[in-house]
Computed example of a mutant assay.
Amino acid sequence: MIYRTLFGAPSRRFSSSFSDLEGMRRQMERLFETYGDQPLSRAGAGVFPAVNITEDADAYYVSAELPGVNSGDLDLSVTANQVTLAGERKISEEAADARYHRREREAGRFSRAVALPGDIDPDDVKARLVDGVLTVTIAKAEKAKPRQIAVQ
Protein backbone atom coordinates (compact mmCIF):
# COMPACT_ATOMS: atom_id res chain seq x y z
CA MET A 1 0.00 0.00 0.00
CA ILE A 2 2.78 2.43 0.87
CA TYR A 3 4.59 1.49 -2.40
CA ARG A 4 1.52 2.43 -4.43
CA THR A 5 1.17 5.70 -2.63
CA LEU A 6 4.80 6.70 -3.12
CA PHE A 7 5.60 5.29 -6.56
CA GLY A 8 2.25 4.78 -8.24
CA ALA A 9 0.57 1.54 -9.10
CA PRO A 10 2.88 -0.92 -10.86
CA SER A 11 0.16 -1.82 -13.31
CA ARG A 12 -0.06 1.80 -14.52
CA ARG A 13 3.67 2.04 -15.14
CA PHE A 14 3.79 -1.25 -17.02
CA SER A 15 0.73 -0.42 -19.10
CA SER A 16 2.35 2.86 -20.08
CA SER A 17 5.47 1.02 -21.27
CA PHE A 18 3.39 -1.49 -23.19
CA SER A 19 1.39 1.25 -24.87
CA ASP A 20 4.67 2.84 -26.01
CA LEU A 21 5.77 -0.49 -27.48
CA GLU A 22 2.39 -0.92 -29.12
CA GLY A 23 2.75 2.52 -30.71
CA MET A 24 6.18 1.59 -32.09
CA ARG A 25 4.78 -1.68 -33.43
CA ARG A 26 2.01 0.20 -35.28
CA GLN A 27 4.57 2.61 -36.77
CA MET A 28 6.72 -0.29 -37.97
CA GLU A 29 3.66 -1.93 -39.55
CA ARG A 30 2.86 1.30 -41.40
CA LEU A 31 6.47 1.52 -42.57
CA PHE A 32 6.41 -2.04 -43.93
CA GLU A 33 3.02 -1.48 -45.55
CA THR A 34 4.46 1.53 -47.37
CA TYR A 35 7.80 0.00 -48.37
CA GLY A 36 7.07 -3.71 -47.95
CA ASP A 37 7.19 -4.56 -51.65
CA GLN A 38 10.53 -2.79 -52.09
CA PRO A 39 13.78 -3.94 -50.52
CA LEU A 40 14.94 -1.48 -47.87
CA SER A 41 18.51 -2.31 -48.79
CA ARG A 42 20.01 -4.86 -51.10
CA ALA A 43 21.93 -7.56 -49.33
CA GLY A 44 25.48 -7.65 -50.58
CA ALA A 45 24.95 -4.67 -52.85
CA GLY A 46 27.49 -1.99 -52.35
CA VAL A 47 29.18 0.25 -54.77
CA PHE A 48 29.37 -1.53 -58.11
CA PRO A 49 31.84 -2.15 -59.52
CA ALA A 50 34.40 -2.59 -56.76
CA VAL A 51 37.53 -0.64 -57.71
CA ASN A 52 41.18 -0.59 -56.63
CA ILE A 53 43.51 2.25 -57.60
CA THR A 54 47.28 1.88 -57.36
CA GLU A 55 50.23 3.76 -58.81
CA ASP A 56 53.89 3.55 -59.52
CA ALA A 57 56.32 6.19 -60.76
CA ASP A 58 54.94 6.18 -64.31
CA ALA A 59 51.23 5.32 -64.18
CA TYR A 60 48.00 4.85 -62.25
CA TYR A 61 46.30 1.45 -62.38
CA VAL A 62 42.55 1.08 -61.96
CA SER A 63 41.24 -2.45 -61.46
CA ALA A 64 37.49 -3.04 -61.44
CA GLU A 65 35.58 -6.27 -60.83
CA LEU A 66 33.02 -6.73 -63.59
CA PRO A 67 31.82 -10.34 -63.55
CA GLY A 68 29.45 -11.14 -66.37
CA VAL A 69 30.10 -7.90 -68.26
CA ASN A 70 31.32 -8.00 -71.87
CA SER A 71 33.77 -5.44 -73.18
CA GLY A 72 31.16 -4.28 -75.70
CA ASP A 73 28.87 -3.31 -72.82
CA LEU A 74 31.45 -0.96 -71.25
CA ASP A 75 32.02 2.75 -71.72
CA LEU A 76 35.28 4.08 -70.30
CA SER A 77 36.20 7.77 -70.27
CA VAL A 78 39.16 9.58 -68.75
CA THR A 79 39.49 13.28 -67.95
CA ALA A 80 42.30 15.30 -66.35
CA ASN A 81 42.04 13.48 -63.03
CA GLN A 82 38.98 11.23 -63.17
CA VAL A 83 38.03 7.85 -64.64
CA THR A 84 34.38 7.12 -65.41
CA LEU A 85 33.27 3.57 -66.00
CA ALA A 86 29.73 2.91 -67.21
CA GLY A 87 28.03 -0.07 -68.73
CA GLU A 88 25.40 -2.70 -68.37
CA ARG A 89 25.44 -6.08 -66.71
CA LYS A 90 23.10 -8.57 -68.30
CA ILE A 91 21.97 -11.67 -66.44
CA SER A 92 19.92 -14.38 -68.07
CA GLU A 93 16.28 -14.42 -67.02
CA GLU A 94 14.98 -17.19 -64.80
CA ALA A 95 11.68 -18.88 -65.51
CA ALA A 96 8.59 -16.77 -64.87
CA ASP A 97 7.44 -19.07 -62.06
CA ALA A 98 10.88 -19.20 -60.35
CA ARG A 99 10.86 -18.48 -56.62
CA TYR A 100 13.98 -16.84 -55.27
CA HIS A 101 15.47 -18.02 -52.00
CA ARG A 102 18.23 -15.43 -52.24
CA ARG A 103 18.74 -12.71 -54.83
CA GLU A 104 22.02 -10.80 -54.71
CA ARG A 105 23.03 -10.63 -58.37
CA GLU A 106 21.42 -7.69 -60.11
CA ALA A 107 21.33 -6.78 -63.77
CA GLY A 108 21.14 -3.31 -65.18
CA ARG A 109 23.08 -0.18 -65.97
CA PHE A 110 25.84 1.12 -63.73
CA SER A 111 28.16 4.09 -63.63
CA ARG A 112 31.14 4.72 -61.39
CA ALA A 113 33.45 7.74 -61.37
CA VAL A 114 36.66 7.70 -59.36
CA ALA A 115 39.10 10.54 -58.85
CA LEU A 116 42.78 10.01 -59.48
CA PRO A 117 45.32 11.56 -57.10
CA GLY A 118 47.19 13.46 -59.81
CA ASP A 119 47.21 14.66 -63.41
CA ILE A 120 47.34 12.14 -66.22
CA ASP A 121 48.19 11.92 -69.90
CA PRO A 122 44.77 11.29 -71.49
CA ASP A 123 46.44 10.18 -74.75
CA ASP A 124 48.20 7.24 -73.05
CA VAL A 125 45.44 5.04 -71.61
CA LYS A 126 45.18 1.26 -72.06
CA ALA A 127 42.34 -1.00 -70.92
CA ARG A 128 42.01 -4.80 -70.77
CA LEU A 129 39.13 -7.00 -69.61
CA VAL A 130 40.31 -10.47 -68.58
CA ASP A 131 38.27 -12.98 -66.54
CA GLY A 132 35.82 -10.33 -65.34
CA VAL A 133 38.50 -7.89 -64.16
CA LEU A 134 39.00 -4.63 -66.04
CA THR A 135 42.51 -3.20 -65.74
CA VAL A 136 43.05 0.37 -66.93
CA THR A 137 46.62 1.68 -67.15
CA ILE A 138 46.79 5.48 -67.22
CA ALA A 139 50.12 7.20 -67.76
CA LYS A 140 50.92 10.08 -65.45
CA ALA A 141 51.40 13.55 -66.90
CA GLU A 142 55.06 14.51 -67.16
CA LYS A 143 54.65 17.21 -64.52
CA ALA A 144 53.18 14.65 -62.11
CA LYS A 145 56.03 12.16 -62.44
CA PRO A 146 58.67 12.25 -59.73
CA ARG A 147 62.04 13.62 -60.82
CA GLN A 148 65.40 12.62 -59.55
CA ILE A 149 67.33 15.67 -58.42
CA ALA A 150 71.08 15.50 -57.96
CA VAL A 151 72.31 16.95 -54.71
CA GLN A 152 75.62 18.88 -54.99
Rank of each mutant, 00 (worst) to 15 (best):
R4D: 14
T5E: 14
A9H: 13
A9W: 10
A9F: 10
R12Q: 13
F14N: 05
S16G: 12
F18L: 15
D20A: 13
M24K: 15
M24P: 00
M28Q: 11
E29K: 11
E29L: 10
L31S: 08
G36H: 06
G36W: 07
G36F: 08
L40G: 06
L40E: 04
A43M: 10
A43T: 10
A45L: 11
G46Q: 10
V47A: 12
F48R: 01
V51M: 11
T54M: 07
E55N: 13
Y61L: 12
V62P: 02
A64I: 00
V69E: 04
S71L: 09
G72N: 12
L76G: 00
V78R: 01
A80G: 06
T84I: 04
I91R: 01
I91Y: 01
I91N: 03
S92L: 11
S92Q: 13
E93R: 14
A95E: 15
A96F: 07
Y100V: 10
Y100D: 13
H101V: 13
H101C: 06
R102E: 15
F110D: 01
R112A: 03
R112E: 04
A113D: 00
V114G: 03
A115R: 13
L116M: 06
G118Y: 07
D119K: 12
I120D: 05
V125N: 06
R128P: 00
L129W: 08
G132V: 04
V133T: 15
V133F: 01
V136K: 05
K140M: 07
E142W: 04
K143C: 04
A144R: 06
R147Q: 14
A150I: 10
